[in-house]
Amino acid sequence: MKHYIWSLLWSVIILVLCSLPSETTADVPKFPGIDKLVHTGFFFVLAVLLYYGEIRKRGTSRPSLRISVNVVLFSVLFALLIEYLQWQIFTYRSAEAWDLFADVVGTGMGVFAYLLLHNTYRYEE
């Protein structure tokens, strides 16, 4: 569990920020699509932190399909939970399929970063 402290903390931050009413960010400059960009960024960071926890826990120096499946599964389930909460509990927020898509894109970006950067063990000499 100690390896996942950063990803758990980030998950709580995402949950809190996604549950705030939209009026709380009225003073922040916005452009069309900023909501999707924020969702993508949230889940990119979450995926990276989940990979960090998994790598530290397993002590691996090689890319692993099992690690990627765990990260993607947790991220997608967490994204579904957030959208469900916005639909049923935080009714002042809107649950959108495009938000879920942006979450999955952010997770995919994290997977890509892992595969790209964690593969560098082959080239270290």
Rank of each mutant, 00 (worst) to 15 (best):
V28R: 12
R62H: 11
S22V: 13
L77P: 05
G41T: 14
A95N: 14
L80W: 11
Y4F: 15
M1V: 02
F90S: 03
L85W: 04
G106T: 08
V72H: 00
R56T: 14
F101I: 13
D35F: 03
T40S: 11
Y51A: 01
G110L: 02
S94C: 05
D99A: 06
H3P: 08
W98D: 10
W6F: 14
F43R: 07
S19K: 02
Q86P: 12
A95C: 15
L49Q: 10
S61W: 13
L50Q: 08
I82S: 00
S64C: 04
W98Q: 09
I13E: 03
S75A: 10
E23G: 04
V38A: 14
G53I: 13
L8Y: 06
S64N: 03
R56G: 06
G110A: 03
N70T: 14
A113G: 03
L37H: 08
I82L: 02
R66E: 12
V69D: 04
A26I: 11
E125V: 14
S75M: 07
R66V: 15
L65P: 04
L116M: 12
F112Y: 06
A102H: 01
E54Y: 08
L117F: 15
T107L: 02
L46P: 00
G106N: 01
T40L: 14
P21K: 05
W10Q: 11
V111P: 00
V38I: 15
D27T: 09
I89V: 15
L81A: 14
P63M: 04
A95H: 11
L46K: 05
G108A: 06
A102Q: 06
D99G: 03
F44D: 01
P32Q: 04
K57C: 09
W87E: 15
A47P: 01
Y52K: 15
N70G: 12
D27W: 14
N119K: 13
V69S: 04
F43P: 00
V111D: 01
H39L: 10
D35H: 06
E125R: 15
N70Y: 09
Y121T: 06
F43M: 03
Y92D: 02
S19C: 02
L9S: 12
V105H: 04
D99V: 07
L8M: 07
L115C: 04
E23F: 14
